[in-house]
């Protein structure tokens, strides 16, 4: 599939999503379950990576002791 066709198909999907927003009864039930699942999956890794990033940046930035 060419890049242009991919762009077109993704645009069609985005338009279908926008149209589906007008029918909240069909997606509202799944929304909270999905949000909880996404948060539970991602939060530990995001906290770990960002903490390590913060530690690394401050270590590399400051003048070391000794």
């Amino acid at each position: 599939m060419s890049a242009v066709a991919g762009l077109g198909r993704s645009t069609l999907l985005a338009m279908a999503c926008a149209q589906a927003l007008a029918r909240p009864r069909e997606w509202a039930g799944e929304l909270s379950k999905e949000a909880v699942r996404q948060a539970g999956d991602t939060l530990p890794l995001a906290l770990l990576l960002s903490s390590l990033g913060g530690l690394l940046i401050s270590q590399q930035t400051g003048c070391p002791r000794g």
Binding site: S50, L55, Q59, R65
Partner: peptide, 14 residues
């Protein structure tokens, strides 16, 4: 979390 880790790293190593 990153700001707290940055603070810990800063006071521990600099």
């Amino acid at each position: 979390a990153s700001m707290l880790a940055g603070w810990l790293g800063a006071i521990a190593t600099t």
